[in-house]
């Protein structure tokens, strides 16, 4: 029983989240006490569902691009041919992480204007770092005996990469993607200050009209999404690393 409890809670959270996004009015009585008598308790300037979907789409697009680029770069710097780039890429990762997301967002605006684009760029750049760092660690800390065995059985460089190195590094790479997605889900809300369609709109509308219910629903939807996605990634990682005998 105790083992199933967390999963039951997650399922319940998912069901409530979907119910809220599809039929937000059902929850009005819960939110009513948070607002002044005649103010709306449920976000009414757009559809919560479509904001959530476009929030997720933004995060997904940015993370996908970041994953492709970061894993590609990590593969490059862990090959003999790209070894010269390794010290610099390590320090770039360190430096990059000191850039606050708001600053990245704000600095992207002059380059591409308002809307989705600066948000995508900020999420992309900010998402690169954890994925790159993890992919680099994963690919450069494989047990030498296994890499050696792959060479010994006559795999080409490409076969070694695709059949041995990447599958073995996958749990670590996934952990990087998980970190990146969680950060991006929260950071995307700030994108609404530069007119991106994300759940940040709900929160900012709440801040502007002093409507606590708006702030709460925007924030909680993002948080629940983040927790659920985080857990889903963790579960996949566990399966993969148990499979790889790295428990």
């Amino acid at each position: 029983m105790k083992r199933y409890l967390p999963n039951l809670l997650r399922l319940a959270a998912l069901i409530i989240l979907i119910a809220f996004l599809v039929q937000p009015m059902l929850f009005e009585p819960l939110l009513k006490p948070l607002v002044q008598a005649n103010a709306p308790a449920v976000y009414n300037q757009g559809s919560l569902l479509s904001l959530t979907l476009s929030h997720l789409a933004t995060v997904f697009t940015a993370t996908l691009a970041a994953t492709i680029v970061a894993v590609g770069l990590a593969i490059l710097v862990t090959r003999p041919i790209g070894a010269e780039f390794l010290p610099l890429s390590r320090s770039l990762v360190n430096i990059g992480q000191t850039f606050p997301p708001v600053a990245v967002l704000a600095l992207a605006v002059p380059a591409v204007g308002f809307g989705e684009k600066p948000t995508l760029i900020a999420l992309f750049l900010y998402g690169l770092l954890p994925i790159f760092e993890n992919a680099m660690t994963g690919l450069s800390t494989l047990p030498p005996a296994i890499v050696e065995a792959a060479r010994g059985t006559g795999m080409t460089a490409w076969q070694r990469l695709t059949k041995v190195e990447i599958p073995l590094a996958l749990p670590v790479i996934l952990a990087g993607i998980r970190l990146s997605v969680t950060i991006s889900l929260a950071t995307a809300t700030i994108g609404s200050t530069v007119a991106a369609k994300t759940l940040g709109e709900v929160i900012i509308a709440g801040l502007q009209s002093n409507n606590l219910a708006f702030v709460l629903q925007g924030g909680v939807v993002v948080a629940v999404l983040a927790v659920l996605i985080y857990d889903a990634f963790s579960a996949v990682e566990r399966v993969l690393s148990r499979r790889a005998g790295r428990v």
Partner: peptide
């Protein structure tokens, strides 16, 4: 940590 910063800031107002 998963609560977006702008939301947490806003929620503490009350």
């Amino acid at each position: 940590q998963t609560i977006p910063s702008i939301a947490l800031f806003g929620l503490l107002i009350a």
